[in-house]
Amino acid sequence: MPTGPLTPSLLKHIGVIPSFPAAPGFDPAAPYVNRYRIWSITSLEPENHLARETGMLRIERLPMQENCLSFRILHRILLEESNGYGGHNDVTVEVLCANDALSTPLEWKLESTFTIANSERDNLSSRETGKFSNRQLTRSVNGIEYTFDISGRLAANWCLFDALQRSISDSHEPFTLFEGFNLIREGHRVRRRPDLDEAFDTATGNLRCSTQLGRGILPYEYWLDSSNRLVAAISGTRIYFLDDKAEEAIADREHNQFIYSGRGAWIPKI
């Protein structure tokens, strides 16, 4: 039986990641669209087979605006009853970031929407705007303003996906993580870990690994291919992996309500 921790090669071995899409001429400094499938795997024991598709993340890098990086992000997580599909939560973000090593978020607009089967209730959508300047992060959520002092540098996790593609050097100074444009977590560092690099397949070649540690997360491992494309990010049981068909895959999953089969809904090849 394979054992953890989860890595791209292990996920290939158990059939979760068959391959990564080809990336001829990928330029991390130019506009691109990266689509990630989101999976969770909580056990590699054959009798538990707890591997499931959970959502998708699309990061679209737009042309620069006044020397700022510009992104459009969609993060969709399926909401499920234990015995069937229930809807999804979408978080969409439009963000302007500094053209720096962390793609520091400067201004953003966020919308969270719930599409739930039993939708006869209060409106659970929310709209936010935010900005970060002079070491102060300000969020305005449904018209209410929240302000936080940030002691040093700031990175938003989804923007960090971009930053890692342009700069895989170590982050010696700690930074504050703004997770999901929602939670503030302090004391984070990214470190290049050549000792964890691993071969994937002949088309992709070797994957280079960087790790992120800090408060409030299990360590993240980021995996980049030879084009400097971030092809996978793994933290504990949470997996993001690049797949051009991520949107179709999650739409299929929503359309074809899954059949409850004991504890797991989808059984990978182990």
Binding site: I38, S40, T42, R52, T54, G55, I77, L78, L79, E80, E81, S82, G86, G87, N89, V91, S112, F114, I116, A117, N118, R121, D122, N123, L124, S125, S126, V141, N142, E179, G180, N182, L183, L218, S235, G236, T237, R238
Partner: peptide, 23 residues
């Protein structure tokens, strides 16, 4: 308010917070 995502906190908990905040 249905917020379940795979019975896992690392996906579900932020959705719970957003939903309660909105409520």
């Amino acid at each position: 308010i249905g917020t379940g995502a795979n019975c896992e906190g690392n996906f579900t908990d932020s959705i719970i917070t957003r939903a309660c905040d909105a409520f």
